[in-house]
């Protein structure tokens, strides 16, 4: 699998077929791991970084061979390809834009990605559609156990798996659920939701529009605590909290539709009209309008748009994707034209 082949397909998590995918876009589980025989990334010299990468790459390729993970050495990829991996949620932003020897191993269905030389030597992640916490953990746990037969992790009986940042130590487990909460935002209940989750030790951040107010009503909820609880406890706790948020969101969606049907219909149809006919559209506007369209699909206002199409439009309208599809570098203004054209075609084909 090459980056160009990656552009032609869409990952498992984008199919929108997972449980509760009306609100839960994706579930992501990641494990942070370091090798005992190397210093952490904070003090690793370029030579050591290079040694760590070759050491881990060999073990991933030999140890996990049958799974056929494709390894990409990021330092050898052009910026646009690295950006594409970020837009696909296969690497972090820092990993895409960082420097030095580093890489990522990706499974062909894009559920598994193993970042090498990110903040820790290894960041193993599983990304799946909808709410699939247990399945995702089982998958990453198996890979972790397989990999561990071929290398020795930095581990301490008291502190567990040792990580570069003390916020990840112990299980090294970060569970993240990406939620679409348009009704919570429209009914101005979102602050309450965020506040409550914060008090329960969950971190919440807007997925798009980082730094300023979030756009697209997409929120990522992650556990803060990684030490002192077992992996299963952390998963169960999250599994107990998320359904309550989903329930609230669904109730508010229906309340909106009942209380102000004209207003909601108008908003959804406007979003549909705009996306279907615009000639120039920015990334931000796309994300915002897609949020209303998604709400409209849920409420049955515009039933003909499948979830896969909505997810594809989110992913393929990002800067690097558009440029890879077009096969050339595009300035921001050119991208806005190409983006509008891409969306029009996809919606016209329905």
């Amino acid at each position: 699998m090459t980056i160009d082949e990656l552009v032609q397909q869409s990952g498992e998590w984008l199919k929108g077929t997972g449980p509760d995918s009306d609100v839960v876009v994706s579930s992501r589980i990641r494990l942070a791991r370091n090798l005992s025989r190397f210093p952490f990334m904070t003090v690793a010299t370029p030579e050591v970084r290079s040694d760590i990468q070759s050491f881990i790459r060999r073990r991933i390729e030999e140890g996990l061979g049958p799974r056929r993970l494709q390894y990409f050495a990021l330092s050898k990829l052009p910026p646009i390809d690295r950006q594409l991996l970020f837009e696909r949620h296969l690497v972090s932003r820092e990993h895409a834009t960082g420097e030095g020897e580093r890489g990522v191993a990706v499974s062909s269905d894009e559920t598994v990605s193993i970042m090498v030389n990110e903040e820790d030597h290894l960041r193993l992640q599983v990304l799946r559609s909808g709410l699939q916490l247990e399945q995702s953990y089982e998958q990453i746990d198996r890979i972790d156990t397989d990999l561990e037969q071929h290398l020795t992790y930095a581990y301490h009986p008291r502190f567990g798996y040792l990580t570069c940042c003390p916020t990840n130590v112990g299980t090294g487990l970060r569970i993240s659920v990406m939620l679409h909460l348009p009704a919570a935002v429209l009914t101005k209940q979102i602050e309450k939701v965020l506040g409550t989750l914060g008090r329960l030790n969950y971190t919440v951040r807007g997925l798009y529009g980082e730094g300023t107010s979030p756009i697209g009503d997409l929120y990522q909820i992650s556990n803060q605590v990684t030490l002192g609880k077992s992996e299963n406890d952390l998963i169960s706790e999250m599994k107990n909290v998320i359904p309550k948020v989903l329930e609230f969101e669904r109730v508010w969606r229906h309340k909106l539709a009942d209380d102000e049907p004209r207003k909601v219909e108008d908003r959804v149809w406007r979003a549909y009209g705009l996306l279907k006919h615009a000639r120039v559209i920015s990334s931000e506007e796309t994300i915002e309008q897609l949020s209303y369209l998604r709400l409209g699909v849920y409420l049955g206002i515009i039933p003909q748009v499948p979830m896969t199409t909505l997810n594809d439009l989110f992913i393929f309208t990002q800067p690097s994707h558009l440029q890879k599809i077009q096969g050339k570098a595009l300035e921001s203004a050119e991208r806005d034209v190409v983006r509008a054209e891409f969306i029009r075609k996809r919606l016209a084909a329905l």
Binding site: D141, D144, T145, E148, Q149, T152, Y153, Y155, H156, P157, R158, F159, G160, Y161, P166, T167, V169, G170, T171, L173, Q224, V225, T226, L227, G228, K229, S230, E231, D233
Partner: peptide, 20 residues
């Protein structure tokens, strides 16, 4: 004290590597 503040715990209770 940092781990106590961040995690509310200072003792690992999760997975152990097979090698260990």
């Amino acid at each position: 004290p940092l781990l106590e503040k961040v995690h509310g715990a200072v003792q690992h209770a999760g997975k152990t590597p097979h090698t260990v």
